[in-house]
Design a protein around this nucleic acid. Structure first.
Lengths: 224, 224
DNA sequence: ACCTGAACACCGTTCAAGT
DNA sequence: ACCTGAACACCGTTCAAGT
């Protein structure tokens, strides 16, 4: 018997940073963040764990690079001839859906402040903020706030989904049990949460996300 | 020679969930998230790693419980006689500072969707949203958006600080090197980021955070 | 230059054995 | 009921040795 079962046969092409990142994304998408190990990765690439270190510095850099590949695509939305507010909405929804489809992207974004993936998003948002003729000194804080809202809420939404999946539950059953827990809280201390428990059951995360964007944009309109 | 060096002498009081959480917070605050291991924790409590499992289910639950202890204090702000918008601002700033002081709280919050620490925040925000007479069906999405903004931005800010500290840099030198990197980007592709690089150097995260809150509140005012 | 894979120093968690 | 600590099945990372 062989020393180690090999699912894939020995690779033809030589290793490269691109192939490593591509394989990492496949693993991250199918097995989640904790599924990406250097052993699983080197197995898929039919090599040893050490080989990867020739092309990549460490796991953090690998995650950032994989994240950047996804964000680069997500941020590439049509812009021409659309009003800035519509572009912002399209950008925001596109990112929301992307983080939802690749939950690991959310945490990778947070762990790489100021790095390329975040800069890509900042730039797109910033250009639209500029097109809205926000006062010069307000451009940066406004773009920042919007960026953080989008990533923050997208991340939170993805975390919910992951939390659910990790427990082998469906979204509906998870929300159902959460609604029950909330409605059983002491009404004296948690009046709002008790009342809102019902709405939890069949709320639409994507719609709530968009509602926040709209609030933001209307705040922006009223202050310029 | 002894089997194992003991920094603390054998504990007097017996173990308890409270003592474990208290010790965890001490470790998390001084050594960060990756400093909290069951070995470090049991060392500090002068016991074995297994003993902890008698009182706590797993590491995730431990982190959530530690996080909840911190949030419970942070959310306990004076409310009486203040206008709702002022309470929201105070609440938001308090949470921002708390997450900044305990960076691990940010990630713990994200990992416990719908759990107690998040509910505490939701409830306080929700009560103020209600006091602002937001339309019934808008209460939940509005509170949600605000909650997510606060936690999202707070978390991002804490991540920046951690990223800096992990590399042994000061905040100013980190921002300086980031500003240089940004200003060297290709102006054709990154006009906004290039321009904004200067503002990065001495911007105030806390002020930017507050600017987002204000934008939110003015959006709320203009839509009610 | 690029790859191999054993080895190192860790993890979280379990569990038979003790009191 | 509560605690002990060795043991298990993992990690990320390194590095001497190979081609």
């Amino acid at each position: 018997m062989g020393k180690k079962p090999r699912t894939a046969q020995r690779r033809q092409e030589s290793l490269s940073r691109e192939r490593i990142i591509e394989a990492s994304i496949e693993i991250l998408d199918s097995d989640g963040e904790e599924g990406l190990t250097f052993r699983a990765l080197s197995d898929r690439l039919a090599t040893g764990p050490g080989a990867i270190y020739w092309h990549i510095d460490n796991k953090g850099e690998l995650l950032t690079a994989a994240c950047d590949a996804i964000i680069a695509r997500a941020v590439d939305v049509p812009v021409v001839g659309m009003p800035p507010e519509a572009v912002i909405r399209a950008l925001a929804l596109g990112l929301f859906d992307t983080i939802d489809a690749h939950p690991w992207v959310g945490s990778a974004l947070t762990r790489a402040p100021g790095q390329m993936p975040m800069v890509r998003i900042l730039e797109r948002i910033g250009q639209q903020i500029r097109a809205l003729h926000v006062a010069d000194e307000e451009e940066w804080p406004t773009a920042c706030a919007l960026l953080n809202y989008i990533v923050g809420v997208g991340r939170q939404n993805a975390a919910n989904a992951q939390f659910t999946r990790a427990r082998g539950l469906y979204r509906s059953t998870f929300l159902e049990s959460l609604a029950i827990t909330w409605s059983q809280l002491d009404r004296k201390d948690y009046p709002f949460t008790c009342d809102v428990a019902d709405q939890l059951r069949d709320h639409d995360d994507r719609a709530d996300f968009l509602a926040g964007i709209k609030l933001f944009l209307s705040g922006l309109r009223s202050s310029t």
